[in-house]
Structure formats: structure tokens, C-alpha cells
Nucleic acid binder design. Structure first.
Length: 311
DNA sequence: CAGACGTGGGC
DNA sequence: TGCCCAAGTCT
């Protein structure tokens, strides 16, 4: 049977990076937009940083977009993607999983591809009483022993699909699983108990002020420092985020935004003069600014307060 | 090496 | 509401 042609490394790389910690539903339309805008890695390598970051807005984990740009430029300079996992692993934003996935899917390298789905399948099948992190090496060895020399990419994607749909975290469908007969977790009657879960730290609250500086139908936006939260992204200017609650001022809007490791209470207050390096963004063209969700919501809260006043 | 790093959806 | 989870990487 003639196999399907291997997918282009560029497409595999772009989709794998987008899918890191991000759902297929969120990625699919954004992936298509990206490909339309930058059909080749040469095109992406030649793009301006702010255009790529703007296109990434809303997808989260913005270090991925910064690394995407750096990676595209390295690959363009090399002339092509490295064709082995070891070579791919050296590129920015490509870790152990992504290097293996690209190597298997785009280049047919028989290598263990272990994402969180595959890890869960193996932990359950082998009945490992540990977290995924604790058993990382064991899991990789088991997957390596299962990976076929023929069509390793299809095998990898099948294992990920099995974990995502059948061997899912909640309510796994063991009755539909081809591995159920020899699965320790299925035999235990409580497959959901696997894998053991890490304890999570409590999420502290931080407070911040965003400045609303408006003139002639435009607002003043700035670009955040490249390091740290929302690095390099367009933003409303404002204070640092602190654990001390600032004295309450009359706010034009306010939001509560949950990040992974803290909750932010952000008040939007009127401000007179433009501060720092920035630009006037027409309110009618605000969507073009590529604001991350935090600031998109902050802006919306101001408009909502306004329309409430007008009503 | 545990924590930093976004966001949206499910229950 | 709150917690879990998602095709992880970097430091």
C-alpha cells in the first residue's frame, strides 16, 4: 500500500508548536490564518516580530511566538529543517516532545513520541503508581519499545488520539480500547485513579492599574518588555502587578483575570498624558493591535461601563 | 528542577 | 465558583 506523502516539516512544526498546551479547537482556525499569511518558513522568517506576535494574540504562552520567530530565522539560514530529532531539539521552542513528533511525522524517524496523552495511556496500561513526571524515563522506554520502524508518525498520532479520545483523563472508555485486555488500570476498576496527580500550589491574587489614555478616537498602547508575562505583546500602559491592593480610585473599568499561577485584579483608570514608548491605536482598529486576552477584556470592560452609562 | 508561562472549555 | 485539563518549553 503506497503511504501518504509525509507532511511538510514546516506545517508539522507550526501545528505542533501551536498545539503545545492548547486545544485543537483553539488552534485549527489560527493555524489556517498563519499559513495563509506566511505559507513558507522563508516568509515567516522575513516577517516583522510585531506582526507575528499580533497574529498569535489570544493563543497564550507567548514565549512560543517569540521562539517561533527565532526558530524560523535559524531554519531559513540553515536552508532547511534538520531531519533528525537530535537536530531539531537544538532549535528554540522545540523540546523533547516536539522534536520527536516532527522527526516521526515529517521524516519517518522511529522515535518515542510522548505527550501527556501517551503518558497517560502508558501509566494506566502498566499501572504505574506515580505522576507522569516521576515516571518520565520509564514511559519513554516503554513507548520506544512499542514504536514501529514502519510509519512511526502514524503510530505516534494514533497513540495520542487514543489518549485524547478513549483513554481520556475523565470517564475513559475502556470498552472501546484495544489495550483494555492487558491494562492494569482497566482491571483495577478505577482507571481514572491513574496517573497520580501533582499537588497544585494555591493561586495568589495580584493587583494592577492599567492607564486609559484616549485622544481623537484613539488610545495609547505600549509594547511589554520581551521578558516575563505577556512578553513582547501589545498592552495598555500601567503599573506593575503587586500583591498589595492599591487604594481604590474611580475606575473606567475593571476585570479579574485568571492566569495559571496567580489571579490578577486589574482596574482601568483614566490618565492624561501618554507615557513611554507607544503608539496611538484607533479604537475602530483595536482588533489589529493584537492585544492578548487580558487587555482585550480590560478594554471591553471600559466599553461596557460606557454603554451602561449611556443607557 | 519546580515554577513561570495564557487561555478557554468541561463539569 | 473553582478546579482540572490541554499535542510543553525554558530556566
Amino acid at each position: 500500500m503506497p503511504g501518504e506523502p509525509a507532511p511538510e516539516p514546516y506545517r508539522v512544526w507550526l501545528s505542533e508548536v501551536m498545539l503545545q498546551q492548547t486545544t485543537v479547537a483553539a488552534v485549527t482556525p489560527r493555524f489556517e490564518r498563519f499559513l495563509q499569511k506566511w505559507p513558507t518558513i522563508e516568509a515567516l522568517a522575513a516577517a516583522r516580530d510585531e506582526d507575528v506576535l499580533s497574529e498569535w494574540a489570544g493563543l497564550g504562552y507567548y514565549a512560543r511566538a517569540r521562539n517561533l520567530i527565532a526558530c524560523a530565522r535559524e531554519v531559513a539560514a540553515l536552508g532547511d529543517f534538520p531531519d533528525t530529532a537530535a537536530g531539531l531539539r537544538k532549535l528554540p521552542g522545540i523540546g523533547e516532545y516536539t522534536a520527536a513528533a516532527i522527526a516521526a511525522i515529517a521524516f519517518g524517524e522511529p522515535i518515542a513520541v510522548v505527550d501527556t496523552n501517551v503518558a497517560r495511556v502508558i501509566i494506566r496500561f502498566a499501572g504505574l503508581e506515580s505522576t507522569i513526571e516521576q515516571s518520565r524515563d520509564t514511559i519513554r522506554e516503554i513507548v520506544a519499545s512499542m514504536t514501529p520502524a514502519d510509519r512511526p508518525g502514524d503510530f505516534a498520532q494514533s497513540m495520542m488520539d487514543l489518549g485524547a479520545t478513549i483513554c481520556r483523563p475523565k470517564s475513559p472508555v475502556c470498552g472501546a480500547c484495544p489495550l483494555a485486555e492487558d491494562c492494569v488500570a482497566a482491571a483495577s476498576g478505577e482507571p481514572e485513579r491513574f496517573p497520580a496527580r501533582k499537588q497544585r500550589a494555591a493561586r495568589p491574587v495580584r493587583y494592577g492599574i492599567a492607564h486609559w489614555i484616549e485622544r481623537n478616537g484613539a488610545i495609547w498602547l505600549v509594547r511589554r518588555p520581551r521578558k516575563g508575562m505577556l512578553g513582547g505583546m501589545a498592552a495598555l500602559p500601567g503599573s506593575d502587578w503587586t500583591e498589595e491592593q492599591p487604594k481604590s480610585r474611580s475606575a473606567l473599568g475593571h476585570i479579574t483575570h485568571d492566569f495559571t499561577h496567580f489571579r490578577l485584579e486589574l482596574a482601568v483608570v483614566a490618565h492624561k498624558s501618554a507615557t513611554g514608548d507607544g503608539w496611538w491605536q484607533k479604537i475602530d482598529d483595536l482588533v489589529d493591535a493584537g492585544l492578548p486576552t487580558l487587555y482585550r477584556r480590560a478594554v471591553e470592560s471600559v466599553f461596557q461601563s460606557r454603554s451602561a452609562l449611556a443607557a
